[in-house]
């Protein structure tokens, strides 16, 4: 049926002014595809318009030859070949590091955040909103200031070392607290903590308490209730925050450049440097595409695992 026919229904008397949706065929109005596309349209258009240019040109430029100004533009595979050449060892190693450090960070964040979110969701009954906001307040303080504090905490004459010395545990300050991979993981973990606490809290909060009571009535111990009911139902929150944290941490370059020392530099630092100091946009683009592909693969793999797990549970 075409829209014109809908408007001029033979014999039908218009009882009210035609609404915008009335001009659409009814099967559209009720179709999932149409409604969902309509709902997603604003966000999709916004992102597409803002990022279409950057992504397409990024890919295009990654195939461009590095030429002097004025020279004609030529296309080549050499940027990608360089990634796999012997001199490209730095790209490959830093890429691995940029997957490894965020992985450690993500695991650490989830492990630390989950119990907190759990207590907030199930055991705190008053001032819940206050708690939620209290959790975010430390992050209203500029990152640059938090970084300065971390240096004071982990520094040679810093809080941790002074405390340990006061306890008599150490007589020399621990130097390994700063400027290595561990320091990057610590600082990143703290920075992203709130991004796990809130989503996990949100998905724990929605769990119907009667499920838990029912499981208890069936004789499950608290641990079993947790493993069989609570944890699985909270996994959407865990996964979405894990993906967020992993992807964002992989692209970070400020924390590694301030805390990473030699073992903690990441590929984000290299992209920035290639793009600006080295003035090699094609290579920067190729490395970015490389990083993006790696992230997409990891995220897809996690999503696949999640999907398989869900299926397996459903069959149980």
């Amino acid at each position: 049926m075409t829209s014109a026919k809908v408007m001029a229904r033979p014999g039908g008397r218009p009882t009210r002014l035609a609404r915008l949706s009335d001009i659409l065929p009814p099967q559209w109005r009720r179709s999932d595809a149409f409604i969902s596309l309509l709902l997603m349209a604003p966000a999709f258009l916004f992102i597409a318009v803002m990022l279409f240019a950057s992504v397409s040109t990024l890919v295009l430029v990654s195939f461009r030859e590095l030429t002097d100004p004025g020279a004609p533009v030529a296309y080549t595979l050499s940027n990608y070949l360089a990634l796999f050449s012997p001199e490209g060892d730095i790209y490959r190693a830093l890429l691995l590091r940029s997957l490894w450090i965020p992985l450690l960070t993500t695991v650490a964040v989830i492990l630390v955040a989950y119990p907190f979110a759990y207590i907030l969701a199930f055991h705190v009954h008053r001032y819940k909103a206050v708690w939620l906001i209290l959790v975010t307040i430390p992050f209203w303080i500029s990152y640059f200031l938090r970084v300065a504090s971390w240096k004071v905490i982990l520094g040679e004459n810093g809080v941790v070392n002074s405390f340990l010395a006061w306890l008599g545990v150490i007589d020399h300050p621990l130097e390994f607290l700063l400027y290595n991979m561990g320091a990057v993981v610590i600082v990143l973990t703290h920075s992203w903590l709130v991004f796990a606490i809130l989503p996990i809290y949100v998905s724990l909060e929605k769990i119907d308490r009667s499920f838990l009571e029912a499981a208890k009535d069936l004789g499950d111990g608290s641990m079993q209730v947790f493993l069989r009911v609570t944890l699985p139902l909270s996994l959407p929150g865990v996964f979405s925050s894990a993906i967020l944290i992993f992807v964002r941490a992989a692209g970070d370059y400020v924390t590694p450049s301030l805390f990473g020392g030699i073992s903690g530099t990441m590929i984000g630092n290299l992209i920035v440097s290639l793009f600006t100091a080295e003035d090699n946009a094609p290579m920067a683009a190729a490395v970015s595409v490389f990083l993006m592909l790696a992230l997409v693969i990891v995220v897809c793999a996690v999503a696949l695992l999640y999907w398989l797990w869900k299926k397996w549970r459903a069959n149980l």
Binding site: T57, L58, V61, R64, T67, G70, V73, N280, A281, P282
Partner: peptide, 13 residues
């Protein structure tokens, strides 16, 4: 043919 400018600027699109 400046890289950046043609990267995000004028030639390809």
């Amino acid at each position: 043919a400046d890289d950046l400018k043609s990267l995000f600027g004028g030639k390809d699109l």
